[in-house]
Design a protein around this nucleic acid. Structure first.
Lengths: 301, 301
DNA sequence: CGAGCCGCTGCAGGAAATGCAGCGGTCAGG
DNA sequence: CCTGACCGCTGCATTTCCTGCAGCGGCTCG
């Protein structure tokens, strides 16, 4: 797309924060890039970037413009994918920002989709619940899948999935004999918890906010994979939501039991997109497929 | 704006229906234009125009693309006007499609607006109620002001103004003594009517649809100005809505009296824009001003 | 059946974008 | 205090791309 190189250049500079850095990622000289910026600013009659000693930063006019540019870029992508669709071939690229808990789930869906549309490529980025929404806003993601998102201003919900917190431990653990477990029972044992940035921890903290009980994890981590291994290795208890537990179990010997809903309320996974945006065909179809799958497996609305 | 010349070229070709014609209006050679089209089609991997013996026409991929292009063009205009606004100077160009009846009203508003923002220019096109909506769709108008529009699919209403039909005649006419007049009384005299394309005529036809009375104008015209002159010159009766009657009266010696609402229902003037579009700052502010003015003078909602 | 359009192409001249080398400025760390 | 690193920006030579001219073949209409 020759006619939008300038737009892509501006976007790159805005992201890189410096002309020379952006030029490097774009495989051109800083001269050329600099000249294009000056040309645009002359066209507009107004500077777009403020020059700092260590680079450049968008000024308010630039903020206005970059919004337009990013919209235009992704809108053009959409049109291209619609046109490709018209020609019979489904092509495209889908970028997804998702909570860590969703990482075990997505690959199966992507594989299923790519079996039918091998021309479609994917990029999946692990983003916490705040960063995921930001990724939608700055167009680094088409779709977001987030557990217990923080604010939903620019977030247009496509689907929500209710998830109860589960305790996970070795199948030799005393609690493994139970169908469901009470939170109190878990706290009789050493526990491993995700950090406060995660929805699971957040739900548990909220549940105990008014009580005298406090969570004293012996191990804390930002990785559920690590927590799972830790739970098995040390024979302690950790927590996760069902979608984060692959069908065969995350690890051999691991079992999970639902926490009694009286103790810890259930949370919601949100699938969503940038408010007001029209998704490319491929992304929309993929979202549709994920939605059907989730609705078949879980409690959705 | 160097980076969108190609887009403007494609738009011009789509409108002109032929490369050579478009090239002429763009003051370039058909060669250059042709090459741009071929380049775009190669980029896209798909033709966007089908070649006919007498020119070119958009194919379905082209229809998809031209929508995107026209959105981008006007969106860019909006961004430019926002940036200009940021710099303190309100600049821009506003195009308005309006019913004939509004033509006497608009100049005062435009004059008032231009007193405060001399940098803003206007283009006003007289369009019947069907063509006005079309003008919004193909981006030849930012705003439309229509009396009794036909369909409102792509039309996003900003304001409606209720208008009663008035009879207009010389102040020497016998009916001039009355406060309001009945339609029946008017029909005792020779009448001059607008053609069926106009809302005033439409309302009157509908009002009489179930009755035995029929409208038999001695003069019919598509010009309210002409009808006014005719009414005075021949001493007969014609019809118009209040907004079409300038404060001092359209002509010396002309008076108007409201038709009894029992006889002819009132109609609505719609001010609107293309659904979903974000107007340039200038157009939005102008619409706001018109809205305030109309709300102060008439019955709006 | 020829006149008039049409879209398209080879070729040459010209305009615009690019890259190289280098300038002046700011900042961090020794 | 100074030195090296990084920044944006500019003069100049080169290359790349775009444009315009002339002309081709195809089609329609009178």
């Amino acid at each position: 797309m020759r006619h939008m190189t300038t737009l892509l250049y501006i976007d790159a500079v805005a992201r890189a924060g410096s002309i020379r850095k952006a030029a490097e990622t774009l495989s051109i000289t800083s001269t050329a890039l600099n000249r294009r910026l000056l040309a645009i600013e002359e066209d507009l009659g107004v500077p777009i970037f403020e020059r700092l000693p260590r680079g450049v930063r968008l000024n308010s006019a630039g903020e206005l413009l970059i919004h337009h540019i990013r919209n235009q870029i992704s809108d053009m992508d959409r049109v291209r994918s619609q046109i490709a669709d018209l020609a019979g071939e489904r092509r495209g690229h889908i970028t997804i920002a998702c909570s860590q808990a969703l990482l075990p789930y997505l690959p199966r869906q992507i594989a299923a989709y790519r079996r039918e549309h091998p021309g479609v490529t994917f990029a999946v980025f692990r983003r916490d619940r705040e960063a995921a929404e930001q990724a939608l806003v700055d167009h680094t993601a088409d779709l977001a899948l987030v557990f217990e998102p923080i604010r939903l201003a620019e977030f247009q919900t496509l689907l929500t999935v209710r998830q109860h917190v589960h305790a996970m431990f070795s199948r030799h653990h005393p609690l493994a004999a139970r169908e469901t477990v009470r939170l109190r029972e878990c706290l009789d044992y050493p526990i491993a918890l995700p950090t406060r940035a995660y929805g699971v921890r957040h739900l548990m903290e909220v549940a105990l906010a008014d009580s005298a009980i406090s969570l004293n994890p012996v191990v804390e981590s930002d990785s559920f994979e690590f927590l799972g291994h830790q739970a098995i290795a040390e024979g302690i208890v950790s927590f996760q939501i069902p979608i984060g537990l692959p069908p065969g179990g995350m690890l051999p010997d691991m079992v999970s039991r639902q926490l009694d809903p009286r103790d810890v309320p259930s949370g919601l996974i949100y699938m969503g997109q940038l408010r007001g945006r029209i998704l490319p065909v491929a992304a929309a179809k993929f979202a549709e497929m994920v939605q059907k799958d989730l609705e078949a497996q879980y409690d959705c609305n």
